[in-house]
Design a protein around this nucleic acid. Structure first.
Length: 758
DNA sequence: CAGGGAAGG
């Protein structure tokens, strides 16, 4: 017997075997179930019974109705195969295409086999997105005929919809499971963990795969199911195989999907202007194809709004020229920063025909990648795919994150095409040649772990007890330089000591749902007596852009922003906006009249409350200073304690800045509200758009750098240049003030450093 | 002088 879990349980009594009543199955539907040796036949019998096996209550009438629908799902027909494979293996890779029912059914099958409720354990199923975790949990609670939040629940940031001791099937975001792992490295609450949508390769899922692979060796009682799309299955099978070299891959459980066929068309020649080609294709479909809605993928907000306008104009022209054969068309933009009410418009029905017998109307949704995985629009029959999306790229050498319009992968193109076949057979128009599809497109989109700044992830890994980050068994290992950059930052922030061990400060930082620079300033902020303000600023920096700037009201929006701007720095402006927002909470129009995003501000308030709870847990005092001038200085000093590596120094008079040490030439972002061009600034972000910019910028004093980050600003090892000369002048001036003293202040610095690390 | 793909804690 390979699996010690099975060996262990072989002797175990079957569930309910102590019952004396021979007719036990009617009252005890799980009678005779041996954990993890349960057969499909037993499950089907229990499902068809009148008593809910998990609550012992009689089934409600709608239960049977839902059950009949479940029986038609492809995965249901393979229950026996699944139950056997689950019994015989610790790790399974599963592929199930759209419509197979894997996300709702597999976790239920596992519950029948694991019987987690009898063993004080849970079955977890992770999702990359919150909405998915919530909606699937609701669906499964209905299917199992239980109340959501009791036997079946979900756990996402800001909402734990579970009942300890009762919940045994928990849907959750991958990020939440990772958080749990930080405090319980063995994930001992779970008997089985299912990673769903693993092919999306989110940062959290990737880290979880590494953790679970090694955890499986320590916890022979833990079972793991990795669910993915077909293309990635072999990679995961090899990764989770017993030998590691792929010679004994993990077993594969495969279920066909249930979608309609999609016919794919390519262009004969490459299209030089994909936006123009996309508009042309949409109009061609509108003119010549059968009724049915269109989904067009573009890369960003501006491109989408622009395309919508052009399509609308041209479609109206077509209709006016030829009202007998061309119907009305509505064009609906879709991207994440749209207010929810506007996002809802994608579900509106297509416009009706203009006249009784006239041609029917058509709906065109012009969307970013959000419609590729996160949002599903029913009724789409035509997909137009120009083959591009914006993708995050991280350059560890210069520590810059940027968004680049890049060709999508084959997997992504396939996913896009599939969006046309959800309700009936569809067509996908790819605006590139078949040859380019075959030869130029990558198989898979590069996983996030290869494209991101890993500062936060590395801190999490260290907190998870991973000692050797370079040799951690990643599915795809990040560039060593990216890891080094992250370790370096964490060491300078005093989250890790020189040996790479977690410091008490680092352990606390890891508990905050923030980037390390932000958790650092939040934790040390009481030293500057301004933790109340730093709390607000960290929350504001954790949410999407709060500024609304409609194309036709730019001047008005800029004027409104100017009224809220604090000239000392954008961080203080954020603080000011939040405070004003809170003071005007009774005025429902306040955000609107001030060109601010009500959604982002509400989010900031929510994040702030969560961070405050964390602060209370660690007894970090909430403090403030009444004198606004002193307060602003204190806030800027505290900011330096986290952002001393994100400093730029003005060079010359042309408004050019050089980033410290990396010597990148950058400009202040046009959104920056600073009064003039101060010599020294910290910045929150370095963005590469038309030019390199620094965004969310605050003026600082160079003395603060020497004082609060002496390790980083050790002038003896500082790269030569104008920045260093300026710092030396500051250091000399500072030393001059203490003329007559024998020491150079280093002892004082050491004390302060020690204090800052606490 | 000019601008944020999607997602997570």
């Amino acid at each position: 017997m390979d699996n010690p879990y099975l060996a262990h349980h072989k002797q175990k009594k079957a569930y309910g075997s102590g019952a004396t009543n021979g007719d036990a199955t009617s009252k005890e539907p799980l009678f005779g179930f041996v954990p993890r040796r349960v057969k499909g036949e037993q499950v089907r019998k229990a499902l068809d019974g009148d008593i809910n096996p998990f609550t012992k209550q009689p089934h409600t009438p709608q239960y049977k109705k839902i059950l009949e629908a479940r029986k038609k799902l492809p995965v249901f027909g393979q229950m026996d195969e699944f139950m056997t494979m689950f019994s015989n293996n610790q790790i399974i890779v599963m592929v199930g295409e759209t419509g197979s029912g894997k996300t709702t059914q597999i976790p239920q099958f596992v519950c029948f086999s694991d019987l987690p409720h009898t063993r004080g354990k849970m079955v977890a199923c992770t999702q990359p997105r919150r909405v998915a975790a919530m909606s699937v949990a609701k669906r499964v609670a209905d299917e199992m005929d239980v109340q959501l939040g009791r036997q079946v629940g979900y756990s996402i940031r800001f909402e734990d919809m579970t009942e300890p001791g009762t919940t045994f099937l928990k849907y959750m975001t991958d990020g939440m499971l990772l958080r749990e792992a930080m405090n319980d490295n063995e994930l001992s609450r779970y008997s089985t963990i299912i990673l769903d949508e693993a092919h999306e390769r989110t940062l959290s899922t990737d880290i979880l795969m590494g953790l679970l692979k090694s955890l499986a060796k320590r916890r022979s009682d833990l079972k793991i199911i990795v669910m993915s799309a077909t293309l990635d299955a072999l990679k995961f099978q090899k990764y989770f195989g017993i030998t590691g070299d792929g010679s004994q891959p993990a077993p594969l459980f495969k279920v066909p999907g249930r979608t309609h066929p999609v016919e794919v068309f390519y262009t004969q020649e490459p299209e030089p202007d994909y936006v123009e080609a996309a508009i042309r294709t949409v109009l061609m479909i509108h003119r010549a194809e059968e009724p049915g809605d269109i989904l067009l993928f573009l890369t960003g907000e501006e491109e989408i709004e622009d395309a919508c306008k052009k399509i609308k104009i041209e479609a109206d022209d077509l209709m006016n020229q030829d009202p007998d054969s061309v119907g009305p068309l509505v064009c609906i933009p879709l991207y994440s920063s749209l207010p929810p009410a506007q996002q809802q418009r994608i579900f509106d029905p297509a416009p009706s025909a203009r006249s009784g017998g006239g041609p029917p109307g058509r709906k065109v949704v012009v969307s970013t990648n959000i419609a590729e995985t996160s949002l599903t629009i029913e009724g789409i029959v035509y997909v137009v795919d120009p083959g591009f999306s914006k993708q995050r790229v991280y350059n560890p050498r210069i520590r810059v994150d940027s968004l680049l319009v890049s060709p999508i992968s084959k997997a992504s193109a396939q996913q896009r095409a599939g969006r046309a076949g959800r309700t009936r057979p569809g067509k996908c128009f790819r605006l590139y040649t078949e040859k380019d599809f075959m030869k130029e497109l990558e198989e898979q989109t590069h996983p996030e772990i290869l494209r991101s700044n890993l500062a936060n992830t590395v801190l999490e890994l260290v907190k998870l007890g991973i000692k050797d980050l370079v040799r951690f068994d990643y599915v795809d290992a990040p560039a060593p330089e990216t890891l080094m950059r992250a370790l370096e930052l964490l060491n300078y922030l005093a989250a890790l000591d020189d040996e790479g061990n977690l410091t008490p400060l680092g352990a606390m930082m890891a508990e905050f749902p923030l980037d390390p620079q932000l958790s650092k300033i939040l934790i040390i902020s009481p030293e500057f007596k301004c933790s109340n303000e730093i709390l607000t600023i960290t929350a504001m920096l954790s949410v999407p852009n709060i500024w609304v700037r409609p194309n036709n009201q730019r001047r008005e929006a800029d004027a409104a922003k100017a009224l809220l701007t604090v000239p000392d720095g954008d961080h203080l402006t954020l603080l000011n906006v939040y405070n004003n927002y809170m003071q005007n909470q009774n005025d429902k129009n306040w955000t609107w009249t001030n060109y601010l995003s009500a959604r982002a501000l509400a989010q900031a308030d929510n994040v702030r409350a969560q961070l405050l709870r964390n602060m209370e847990r660690f007894e970090i005092e909430l403090m403030s200073i009444t004198d606004p001038r002193k307060l602003y200085i204190a806030v800027r000093m505290a900011l330096v304690c986290g952002f001393f590596m994100q400093v730029a120094h003005k060079e010359g008079e042309k408004g050019q800045y050089l980033t410290v040490k990396d010597n990148q030439v950058v400009g202040l972002h046009p959104s920056c509200g600073l009064d003039g061009q101060p010599e020294w600034v910290i910045f929150n972000e370095f963005v590469l758009t038309t030019r390199p910019y620094i965004r969310t910028v605050t003026e600082i004093k160079p003395e603060w750098l020497l004082e609060y980050a002496p390790q980083y600003y050790d002038l003896s090892s500082f790269p030569e240049g104008e920045t260093k000369r300026a710092l030396v002048r500051v250091a000399n001036k500072k030393a001059g003030k203490f003329a007559g003293r024998t020491d150079d202040g280093s002892e004082r610095d050491a004390k302060r450093r020690k204090k800052a690390r606490q």
